[in-house]
């Protein structure tokens, strides 16, 4: 694992966090990780949500867990014994969270030490932070180089994201980057959802990605296959774009709307539904 890393180059540690729960941190971690791995980079994902393990099931690796993060830091097993290799991508690994322990089972210093070890083996270490601003969050940013804040265009998650931005800046890390997840372009157009511009203006941190609300996330999570590996998924494409930006490439922000401009809206408003305008999703094949 990570044998292909060039001698002397160190990988980056990136923490994905949000403050509020349920905004899509775990999905974001799984998808960016899968997308970076499919770009040929070596990646390890750490589920830092001790007690509420989830990254394993989102990746479809829940049946392969023997050791976990707490076993690693306590020395019950060697680091590589706790790394689960992904089914599809042989340069993607997961260190799962312990399910029956407390957040206090790991200290910030232990996370730092672990991150220093992992950056010698992997191009990217992505840490899926738990919700909240307590020890689990502090553990997850302890060894990080960069922090990515995930938010939804909705008042409570933006407020919590602002709190996280303050805490990250207070801990002398670089200004975090923003992902606006689950944006619904139709609601934004109607004036019933804050736009990406509204959210970035309020939080005033750099934007690294915009992910549209997309039912392929539901179906891919059901199957345990990251949407980033599905070429048809719009959210998957958004996650691939984020991965490329993290990988240092310039990628323009994709249009949020389906190919569904004024012409189709006109047809719809007079009762004509063009079959091509219907998103074909959730079918048997994908």
């Amino acid at each position: 694992m990570g044998e292909d890393r060039q001698q002397g180059t160190l990988g980056r540690i990136i923490t994905i966090t949000s403050g509020k729960g349920g905004v899509g941190k775990t999905t974001t971690t799984a998808n960016i990780g899968a997308a970076l791995a499919s770009l040929g980079r070596s990646v390890v994902l750490i589920d830092a949500d001790i007690g509420l393990r989830n990254l394993d099931i989102v990746l479809g690796l829940e049946n392969r867990i023997v050791y976990d993060l707490v076993d690693v830091v306590e020395g019950t097993c060697r680091l590589r014994q706790a790394m689960i290799r992904d089914k599809r991508l042989n340069n993607l690994y997961l260190i799962p969270a312990a399910q029956t322990r407390e957040k206090e089972a790991v200290s910030p210093q232990q996370m730092k030490t672990l991150c220093e070890e992992l950056r010698r083996q992997f191009d990217f270490t992505l840490i899926d932070s738990p919700a909240g601003i307590e020890q689990g969050f502090r553990n997850s940013i302890a060894g990080a180089d960069d922090v990515v804040v995930v938010t939804n265009p909705e008042v409570s998650s933006v407020r919590d994201a602002d709190r996280i931005v303050g805490l990250v800046e207070a801990s002398e890390l670089a200004t975090p980057k923003l992902i606006v997840n689950r944006i619904d372009p139709a609601l934004v157009r109607r004036g019933d959802m804050m736009s990406v511009d509204d959210v970035t203006e309020i939080l005033s941190i750099p934007l690294i990605g915009v992910v549209p609300s997309d039912e392929t996330i539901v179906t891919s999570t059901n199957r345990g296959e990251p949407a980033a590996l599905d070429p048809e998924s719009r959210a998957g494409r958004a996650f691939r774009n984020i991965a490329q930006r993290i990988n240092g490439e310039e990628v323009p922000f994709m249009p949020l709307e389906e190919p569904d401009g004024a012409w189709r809206r006109l047809l719809r408003s007079i009762g004509i539904r063009s079959s091509k305008g219907e998103p074909v999703r959730g079918g048997g094949t994908s």
Partner: peptide, 21 residues
């Protein structure tokens, strides 16, 4: 056609969200 809300008399819920935030 223009993708606007039917009612412009009231401030949109998005602008209320932003203001409150």
């Amino acid at each position: 056609l223009m993708g606007r809300s039917a009612s412009r008399r009231n401030p949109s819920s998005a602008s209320m969200a932003k203001q409150r935030l």
